[in-house]
């Protein structure tokens, strides 16, 4: 899929809707002998590869599972500290699964709020008059597009850098959202979008006389023929 994620952020920087829509990130599971050729370090609540790279394991990958048992942050499935476990030769050979860490919901909230501030700073540091905040942010693996409405809501889409037509997608998402915000009297503005009608049902499109199925509509918009 060429669209990776959609985030909707309210005026205060709080995340009110989030959708991930991409293939699973690269993971690799290998058996290692002592000593481990990779340098590991703790970071936030995970154990990451700091240095060393082989067979698909890259710097920045996290330890996801040991001997088939998923790790719980910095501790193994059965409660032992991962770094201690991996520094004792008695525990080798060991099979470790590495991969790009998935974002937890807390992290997504934090990143949405971070982007909200970066957006504003982009405008403040502008060398030209009357600049908006960050509208497009480009990296070598994805392109982030942001549309801020006059009411201060931001729609953020992460897509493949070569994907075209994102502006149209952003406008469409805005339409769907505004239908939902205007027409559902039970939705309080700025609050997370959480209604059960939003989950499930893949292929539904557009307005219907029951309340618009916003989440499914947003998913459908993201997977529409717009994507390659």
């Amino acid at each position: 899929m060429a669209i990776f994620s959609v985030y909707v952020v309210n005026k205060a920087g709080g995340l009110i809707y989030q959708l991930d829509h991409y293939a699973p990130r690269a993971e690799s599971e290998k058996t290692f002998g002592f000593p481990l050729e990779l340098v590991l370090r703790p970071h936030d609540e995970r154990v990451l590869v700091a240095f060393g790279q082989r067979d698909g394991v890259r710097v920045g990958h996290a330890v996801l599972a040991i001997n088939g048992l998923e790790v719980n942050g910095r501790f193994t499935g059965d409660g032992r500290d991962v770094l201690e476990y991996l520094s004792s030769p008695a525990n080798f050979p060991v099979s470790i699964r590495f991969g790009r860490p998935r974002l937890s919901s807390n992290e997504k909230l934090m990143l949405a709020s971070m982007f909200h501030s970066l957006f504003a700073i982009g405008s403040q540091l502008s060398p030209e008059q009357g600049s908006s905040g960050i509208e497009v942010l480009e990296t070598d693996t994805f392109k982030l597009h942001c549309f801020q409405t006059l009411t201060g809501i931001k729609f953020v889409v992460l897509a493949d850098p070569r994907q075209a037509g994102i502006d149209a997608l952003l406008r469409k998402i805005y339409e769907i959202y505004s239908d939902f915000a205007l027409k559902n009297p039970f939705y309080s503005l700025e609050m997370p979008i959480r209604y059960p009608l939003l989950l499930g049902q893949e292929q539904q499109q557009g307005p219907a006389s029951p309340p618009p199925v916003t989440g499914a509509a947003l998913e459908a918009a993201a997977s529409s023929p717009l994507n390659v």
Binding site: G60, R100, L118, S123, S126, G130, E135, E138, T139, D140
Partner: peptide, 26 residues
């Protein structure tokens, strides 16, 4: 912050990372 943001958000391993951003004017 942008570099940290980008490395967490990226769905794939990055090589060059953050390249550029644009606003309505620059």
């Amino acid at each position: 912050s942008i570099r940290s943001f980008v490395s967490k958000m990226s769905p794939l391993d990055m090589k060059e990372g953050f390249l550029s951003f644009q606003t309505s004017k620059y």
